[in-house]
Design a binder for these strands. Structure first.
Lengths: 129, 129
DNA sequence: GCTTGACCCTCCCATTATGGGAAGGTTAAA
DNA sequence: TTTAACCTTCCCATAATGGGAGGGTCAAGC
C-alpha cells in the first residue's frame, strides 16, 4: 500500500504519517526501489489507534506511551488504566477552567445592555483587576 | 517606567510586551536616548486588560478587536456584546467536545480491571473504529 | 513509445502564544 | 570604578498540522 491509500483508510493525512515517522512515533516503513513508502494492514490499524487517541485529546507524547503499551503483550492493564485516568483528570481541569471563563463572560454579557450606547460593563469588567 | 516594572505590575512578561508591540497589538512606545522603552500608567491598564482577556480565553485576534473597541469612545456596547457572545459559543463548543472525550474515556476506564493482567478494554476501545 | 494525470518524494515555511538564551549595551548603587 | 541588575535585538524552540515548491514515478490511453 502507498501512503495515500493508508492515509485514506486511517483518516491520518499523508503529511502527518510522514511526520509521525520523523518523530519516531511509528517505525520507518520499507521503501520501494523508487523510494515510495510501503505499508500493510497492521499499519492502518496503528494509525487508526493513533487517530482515535488524538480525537480523545491525548498528546502525541501520551500516545507514544499508549503505543508502546499496545505493542507490548507484557504490559499490565493497570498501566494503561493509570494513563487513562491521568488524562481524565487533565480533561476535568481543562473543562473546569473553560467553564469558569464561560461563566465570567456570561455574567459580564448579562450586565451589558448591548445597544447603541457606548457604555459597556464587559469592557469595564475586563479592565478591572 | 521601564519594561520590567510594567511587566511586573501588569502580569504580562517583558517578552510578551515586546511581542505585542511587534505584531501591532499595542502601539510602539517612546524610547529613551539609549533605546529603553518608556511606559506610563495607561499602558499598564491596557496590558492588564489584555492579560485578563487572555485569561478568559480570547485569542490575540479577538483581543485586537476588543482593544480597538475599548480605544474607541464611539463604539456601541452592542458590538462588544456580540464579540463576547460569539466567544461564549466557542467556549461552549470546546467544553462539549472535552466532555465527550472525558465521558468516552471514563467508560473505557470503568471496563478495565486495571490489574496485572495484560488484557485491557481501553486499548481495544482505542483500536476499534 | 509518449503523453498525461495522479501519485510520491524532500525541504522549507506558516500557524498560536509563549519562552529560553546569547551577545552586547546601560544604569545605578556601592 | 566595579558590579549587578537592567535593557536591547536576534535566533531558536515548543505542539500539531497544513501549504506549497520543485522534482521524480507510475499506469493508463493514444
Amino acid at each position: 500500500m502507498n501512503i495515500g491509500e493508508v492515509a485514506k483508510s486511517s483518516s491520518v493525512s499523508a503529511k502527518m504519517i510522514r511526520h509521525y515517522e520523523s518523530i519516531g512515533l511509528i517505525r520507518t516503513s520499507p521503501r520501494t526501489l523508487s523510494g515510495y513508502r510501503q505499508y500493510h494492514e497492521r499499519d492502518v490499524h496503528l494509525l487508526r489507534f493513533i487517530r482515535r487517541a488524538r480525537d480523545l485529546g491525548f498528546s502525541l507524547e501520551q500516545i507514544r506511551q499508549l503505543v508502546s503499551l499496545w505493542d507490548n503483550p507484557e504490559r499490565a492493564s493497570g498501566d494503561v488504566k493509570r494513563l487513562a485516568q491521568a488524562h481524565i483528570t487533565e480533561l476535568d481541569q481543562r473543562i473546569a477552567a473553560l467553564t469558569d471563563m464561560r461563566d465570567t463572560l456570561v455574567t459580564l454579557a448579562k450586565s451589558c445592555h448591548g445597544d447603541h450606547r457606548p457604555d459597556c460593563p464587559i469592557l469595564h469588567g475586563l479592565a478591572r483587576i
